[in-house]
Design a protein around this nucleic acid. Sequence first.
RNA 1: GGGGGUGCGCCGGAGUUGGAGAGCCGGGCCAGACUGUAAAUCUGGUGACUACGUCUGAAUAGGUUCGAAUCCUAUCACCCCCA
Length: 375
Amino acid sequence: MIGFELLKTSSTGNARLGQITTANGIINTPVFMPVGTQATVKHVSHKILTELDAQIILGNTFHLYLRPGNKLIAQAGGIHNFMNWDKPVLTDSGGYQVYSLSEMRKISEEGVSFRSPVDGSKHFFSPEEATRIQQDIGADIIMAFDECTPYPCAFEYAEQSMKLTHRWLDRCMGYLKNGSGASQNQIFIPIVQGSTYTDLRKESALYVASKECPINAIGGLSVGEPAPIMYEMTENVTAYLPENKGRYLMGVGTPQNILECIDRGVDMFDCVLPTRNARHGHLYTKEGVINIKNAKWKNDFSPIDPDSTSDMSRNYSKAYLRHLFSVNEALGYQIASIHNLAFYLWLTSQARNQILQDRFKSWKGGIVDRLGQRL
RNA sequence: GGGGGUGCGCCGGAGUUGGAGAGCCGGGCCAGACUGUAAAUCUGGUGACUACGUCUGAAUAGGUUCGAAUCCUAUCACCCCCA
């Protein structure tokens, strides 16, 4: 039965163990979902993603609509066929682009008019259109079309934007209800907004909860606000979201952010940090972040990370990886991306084990201390 | 051996035709940032020091001049042409 099942809740804190059943397999939660905006997790092959035990990857509706086009993906038989990935896929709706491409879009009641970052052409995204495109793409999990607000955000704007996101949510759901039925196998996730205002967050969480979807998402965080505010808002929202439904904190975050939010009852995470920062030379390890481009690694012939679950990180040296970065070789980006994903996926797999043994809270405290302030 | 040309900061380029510059554009190098990916990207730094300032500086050494990267002399280096 497609949906979310809660398996276990910690005796201290709110960390939970759960399972999402999708049309293309089961996902054990808490889960970290690697981001593959353009139908690829940058520099990482599907084979390696599978070896690292990635349970699900993301795609992006806006970017896939622009290139190669949702119709072409439909023609290929859907995103799984197109990219030859047979495990679950989640597509973000384009709501994040309302935030990240704020210089090239205009919001109205009807939807959002974007200018393409590719060629400047105009494209209109309504909630119905964003949902229809996600049906074409054919991911297992699809997102409501929302407005991700920036930080800081004035109360008046946050309130008005949240209400708009709610109206858009109703339109997405109306479209799904009256649509072609292609969505039968897709899990639809509504998104809580409300910026950094507890009253708005509560109102939005209650509104979203009333839709009784199998999974609910928290959006509009990790957009530049201090971590304590992110934690506070997350706590504030999870308090009003139903226990027996999945919870997805969108766009989060650092390893520390993820552990703190698992502890607050979140089941799903996605973030570009492990892959983007990898390409920029930042590697996550149990001892903290290292920047492999730094001169101090020039003569360090020790393994990149002897504890990594990635054999590349155990077998290649820091000096070699630094060299690959300094001469701009693709293998460097590949090793680093795999390293960081291995770390994130190892961390969340550990988290699941610790919850299973009901030791998550104390384990988290220890590892967060070791990860250090920079994470 | 003779003639001509060019010399500045880690490298390359531009510019400077007597009123100066620790200055421009690339690159390299050294750091930093990045959270539902316009991102193999972006930002800053890169002579010295007693450091929000001061000093040294246009191949080297002299000279002319109120003033020289610019003009003159010598030397050195490199490039081109002739033998």
